[in-house]
Simulated scan of single mutants.
Amino acid sequence: MRRLWGRLSSVNVQKAVWGLEELGLPYERVEAGGAHGRVRDPDYLALNPNGLVPVLEEDGFVLWESNAILRHLAETHGRGGLWPQEPQARAHVNQWLDWQATAFTPAMRDAFWQTVRVPEAERDPAVIARSVAETEACAAILDAHLAGRAFAVGDHFTAADIALGCPAHRWLHLAVPRQPRPALEAWYARIAARPAAATVLLTPIT
């Protein structure tokens, strides 16, 4: 029995769901977080003391942190595909998973929160502008890396494309001014066309 806890509008839950869908693994998703609540309930905190989503349960095995879940799924079920066999390629997948978690998504957080969840009259333009500038710097790095590449690592779709693709989806659909990033946008269109991506990338940004 495989269960994933978390609301699909969460960018972190999206990574786990996309991984499960790409691998064709059966799972049950339980709504949690945001308006669904549950994350402060004692039974949920017993699974994840941080009170965050997602959480993966597999026959008594419990794992939290979205990139840890994505790594686990890819390494266990996606060897040679989502998780490359070649050690240096795997190292680069890990590099981009870490960069997404420590740079790309954190840079975007305030721009997302202010433009999506804060009423317009209460928004802070300076906070938005700072977050947009920080995210633009990350987008420039990713765009330069993707120039001449079909995917983030090597010649095939990997877990790195999932980890980067979910925040890229959010960034490209925020109501903020953005610089054109041809390589990033072409890569995003390519990965968004994958059947497994529809489950997460058609979800409204909320």
Rank of each mutant, 00 (worst) to 15 (best):
E65I: 00
V132E: 13
P87Q: 04
N94A: 12
T203V: 15
N48Q: 09
I128Y: 01
E28V: 13
N12T: 05
V62D: 06
R117P: 07
D161K: 01
L8F: 01
L146A: 10
W18M: 02
G34A: 14
L142N: 11
V127C: 13
W187E: 02
A150P: 04
A139T: 11
W171G: 08
V200K: 02
E134V: 07
P125V: 11
R178H: 06
H173P: 11
A129I: 11
G154S: 06
R194Q: 05
A168L: 08
L23R: 07
L202E: 12
A74G: 08
R190S: 01
H36M: 09
R178N: 06
L45H: 12
R38V: 12
E57A: 12
T105I: 01
C166Q: 15
R3C: 02
L184V: 04
V55K: 13
P106C: 00
P177Y: 00
A160D: 05
A196N: 05
W171L: 12
H77F: 12
R109C: 06
S131D: 11
V62N: 08
N12W: 02
G19V: 00
Q100E: 15
A74V: 01
A46E: 14
W113Y: 15
A32K: 10
H169Q: 12
N50L: 15
H36W: 15
A159I: 02
A175L: 04
D43W: 13
W96A: 00
P204E: 08
D143N: 15
P84M: 01
R2E: 00
L52H: 09
S10N: 03
E122H: 10
Q88S: 12
L201W: 14
N48P: 10
V127I: 14
L63C: 11
L146E: 11
G24F: 10
Y27S: 10
D161T: 04
S10M: 04
D143G: 13
N67M: 03
L4E: 04
A140Q: 13
A186C: 00
I162F: 07
A193E: 10
A197P: 06
V132M: 11
L8N: 02
S10E: 03
T76Q: 09
A147M: 08
H169S: 08
A183E: 00
L4N: 02
V62R: 15
W64F: 15
E31I: 06
A46N: 10
Q114H: 06
T102A: 12
A150T: 13
Y44Q: 13
A186T: 09
D110T: 14
E57I: 10
H156E: 12
L52M: 14
E86L: 00
D59T: 10
A137P: 08
D155T: 08
D98M: 10
R71P: 03
Q95P: 09
A168S: 15
W99K: 05
Q114G: 08
T115G: 13
I162D: 01
N50Q: 14
L73G: 05
L97N: 09
G34V: 10
G6A: 05
D43E: 15
T206F: 13
G80L: 03
V39D: 09
P177S: 02
A32F: 05
V30A: 08
P42C: 13
V17T: 04
V153L: 05
I69Q: 02
A159W: 05
L4K: 04
H173A: 09
L82D: 06
T203P: 05
P195Y: 06
A68Q: 04
R130H: 13
R117D: 12
R117M: 15
M1F: 03
